[in-house]
Design a protein around this nucleic acid. Structure first.
Lengths: 248, 248
DNA sequence: GAGTGGTCTAGACCACCCG
DNA sequence: GGGTGGTCTAGACCACTCG
């Protein structure tokens, strides 16, 4: 493996063993061999399966834990991460109340429909313009105060059978629903944030004056293999809340 | 070490060896034994010094590297991180151009003076109201377009001798100056972001209409030991730029 | 070729959880 | 008491850098 060839090696042909193990474990996560919330085999068991030492498996799992794909619990084992836990809820929700403890908002769905992807949406979701997408529009409120108006675009192929009923009856974060019902786990996301003036539509939904300044966020979320699976455009009212970020 | 006592242990008295080593190395970084940009002793050397195995030193340095306090370079050694490098420049500057490659803005200083800390500033900087602080106001421009107006508050005791001249003549990011001239390295920061309307002052400096929506950021930066050493309140024009964030 | 960080192994022991 | 992850060690070898 990684033997020199007659021509100079262009690409880095060397891949550490623990990275290969990590890739194998990731495959099992992706294929659903171990589902979110479940216990994965112990380190010694995986070491035997892959014919490597425990230390090598350990280093692979270390990285997966750092990327929030699994969670280690001393004395119990290693578990597949899930969006169904308090810990995970605030990983993607960065809007915090200026006073008081963070909590999850209530959702009201305005619109849920299937349509064909506009060019800009298609580009961000790695689809072709005209491909089927699910469009969702909702308003979220903290303690009854409408604060977020959000439009989501999801690849239609992945989210077949997603209806307004499913969304309404489901309690908890939407990423939990996506994970349980559609086998799609959001791993990471990139966000672009700017300041804008509320247009008439947003102003009406948030019950504020038009031209109130709002935070505008465009988020693209990715699942395994860096595949984009959600475009979310949100407007945030930041009178009683702020977007929290840690720079490190 | 960590011996059981007659009474039940209340606090977790156990601290892994590598954490203790990490703390010792951090002390040396803080004390200036190894300065930013410099090479620190090799892993074997540190292992000998601390009478532990190389693996233990390695794990300590692994964490320091993950926290951006040091940088490893295979074949060369481990270096103390510094803000004088391209890599570091965009760790704290999250405003990116919508088009084109990120680059550093030019600064124009509006005001540099020493005064007594208002109550809110004192609280965030862990000072007493009335303590001496340095106040800086500046405008930053990308390609000649004024885009950021920023007010900084710094503890007067730490930044003795900081003058407008030093700021103006210094080329490069301000954190580089703070590091080189005042021995204060910014390690991490927390940021609160909201949308606001430009007031007359900001509008004049940014050459925009009053009531243009702007991103308002309040950042508190910390040095070693989680000590707050900078409060920065910025207004960002997001017509041609956006605040970039990675959620993971 | 010597020195550095990076990988891999094997084995011992510790802290934690649970039946 | 037996299983799990967590720590620590000692030693071998690999990849990279530089004189």
């Amino acid at each position: 493996m990684n033997a020199p060839t007659a021509v100079a090696a262009i690409a880095p042909t060397f891949s550490p063993l623990y990275q290969q193990i990590k890739a194998l474990i990731t495959q099992s996560l992706q294929s659903g061999e171990w589902k979110p919330g479940e216990l994965i085999p112990s380190e010694v068991e995986l070491a035997n399966r892959f014919k490597v030492s425990q230390g090598t498996v350990r280093k692979a799992i270390d990285e997966l834990a750092a990327e929030n794909l699994v969670m280690r619990k001393q004395g119990k084992g290693t578990f597949v991460s899930t969006h169904h836990e308090a810990r995970a809820h605030f990983r993607f929700l960065r809007l915090m109340p200026d006073e008081g403890v963070p909590h999850y908002p209530e959702s009201k769905f305005i619109e849920v429909k299937r349509l064909r992807a506009p060019a800009d949406v298609a580009r961000l979701l790695d689809l072709k313009a005209g491909d089927a997408v699910v469009f969702i529009k909702r308003v979220q409120s903290f303690d009854g105060v409408p604060t977020i108006v959000e439009e989501l675009w999801l690849p239609g192929a992945t989210f077949k059978g997603l209806t307004a009923e499913r969304l309404v009856e489901y309690k908890g974060p939407m990423y939990g629903l996506f994970e349980s019902e559609f086998g799609t786990r959001m791993i990471r996301a990139t966000e672009k944030i700017r300041a804008v003036c509320a247009d008439d539509g947003a102003a009406a939904l948030l019950k504020i004056a038009a031209s109130t300044p709002l935070l505008a966020s465009e988020r693209v979320s990715f699942t395994y293999g860096d595949k984009p699976v959600e475009l979310r455009r949100g407007l945030y009212l930041t009178e009683q809340h702020h977007y929290h970020n840690e720079l490190s």
